[in-house]
Amino acid sequence: MKTLGYYNGRFGELDEMTVPMNDRVSWFGDGVYDAGPSRNYKIFALDEHIDRFFNSASLLRIQMPVTKSRLKELLKNLVKKMDTGNLFVYYQVTRGTGIRDHAFTDGPGNLWIMLKPAEISDGKEPVRLITMEDTRYLHCNIKTLNLIPSVMAAQKAKEAGCQETVFYRAGGRVTECAHSNIHIIRDGVLVTAPADNLILPGIARAHLINICRQLCIPVSEVPYTLEDLYAAEEIIVTSSSSLCLHANEIDGKAAGGRNPELLERIRAALLQEFYDATPAENAGR
């Protein structure tokens, strides 16, 4: 299959799939999701993504229709049906199906899965960023389907010829990007926002922190500001789709680029970890 859509046991090519109009996602965006890359038919960091997925559902009191082990098995089996093993693996659960009512729909949620071909960036080419005040709500640690602020921010970046939008709160605290986490190198230290309710605790963020510690690079999980961002030695953007990007421009002004050796050590180590976890041997379906 070139693409794959799954809904509560039914699956087919994405453009052939339909879902009930009364799925609560249609009325309220009532659900949570997670996603990550696959390479050579092997899904990277699957346990970590599934744990975060179930945690998001729990925080919104959504009843999962499958167990963790069953979902992992299902995803691995669906990946094997694809023409390529290099994929973006996306899954979401919505609260259920019922006539529109703000109060919860009883029963287990609906499970959606989407697979499409995708490659992980090697992170060698720099990206351009713009900034935007973070007007989202105060539960950014839950990976919900309510992404309108991120959609608008991503469109703003696209129209400006940039790849990402950096969010900041009143007072200038940098939180994260429209669909990434953002970090800086300051005096040789990786500085990353704390995993509080203002950011999503990214899986790629966790791998970045672990790699830095393995490389004996100090890590500081503390709030930092726009001023810190503009003055940073290097700016690193991470997500499950792009494990280690770096920025050379913010709001039309040059940024980063002052500790390339350290940046390259981090980038190379993160990519190697990904390659080691998704080897080509025995990748057949």
Rank of each mutant, 00 (worst) to 15 (best):
L78S: 08
D47H: 14
K253F: 09
N146H: 10
I209L: 09
L60F: 07
L14I: 15
H49S: 12
W27H: 15
G284L: 08
T192Q: 07
A157K: 07
N181H: 09
N181V: 02
V79D: 06
R24F: 05
I113V: 12
S38C: 10
I50D: 00
P194E: 04
E73N: 11
I99A: 12
D251F: 06
F104G: 00
A247W: 00
I235E: 01
Q63Y: 05
I217V: 15
T135G: 08
N141S: 10
E16S: 15
V19Y: 13
L229C: 05
R267C: 02
C177I: 02
F11Y: 14
S69C: 12
I235L: 05
T165D: 11
N86P: 04
K124F: 03
F274N: 02
N55W: 15
S180L: 01
H102N: 08
V219T: 07
A154R: 13
G256P: 05
T94Q: 00
Q63M: 09
C244W: 01
E264C: 07
I62R: 02
T165P: 09
N197R: 15
L215Q: 13
C244A: 10
G252N: 05
Y33L: 09
L262C: 06
T105P: 01
Y275R: 12
L270Q: 05
N8M: 01
R186W: 05
C177A: 05
L190Y: 04
D122R: 03
H139N: 11
D251Q: 03
G252F: 00
D134Q: 11
T278S: 06
S121T: 11
T175L: 04
T278R: 03
L87W: 01
I199F: 14
R285S: 12
N259M: 01
T105F: 05
K124W: 02
M152Y: 12
H246R: 02
L87R: 03
E249A: 00
N282A: 14
S220Y: 10
L270G: 03
G98H: 09
K156Q: 14
I62F: 08
V166M: 06
I130V: 14
G257Q: 04
L71K: 04
L4M: 09
K116I: 08
L229H: 09
D51W: 06
I185Y: 01
I182Q: 01
N197P: 02
L243W: 05
T105N: 06
A57S: 09
L226T: 13
E73M: 09
P260N: 10
R186N: 06
K72M: 15
C216Q: 14
T135M: 13
F44Y: 13
K42N: 07
L229N: 05
I50N: 00
F104N: 08
L115Q: 10
D251P: 00
L190R: 04
A195D: 15
G252E: 04
W112G: 07
I62L: 11
N282P: 02
A231Q: 13
E249T: 00
G284T: 12
R169L: 15
A45R: 09
N40A: 06
A254V: 06
A160N: 14
Q155R: 15
Y41W: 12
Q155S: 12
M114Y: 13
G123C: 03
L147P: 06
K2H: 12
R186I: 02
N141M: 11
T67C: 07
C244K: 01
D34Q: 10
T97C: 04
V25E: 02
V89M: 04
K76D: 14
D34H: 07
L226G: 12
L243H: 06
V174N: 03
Y7Q: 04
M1P: 11
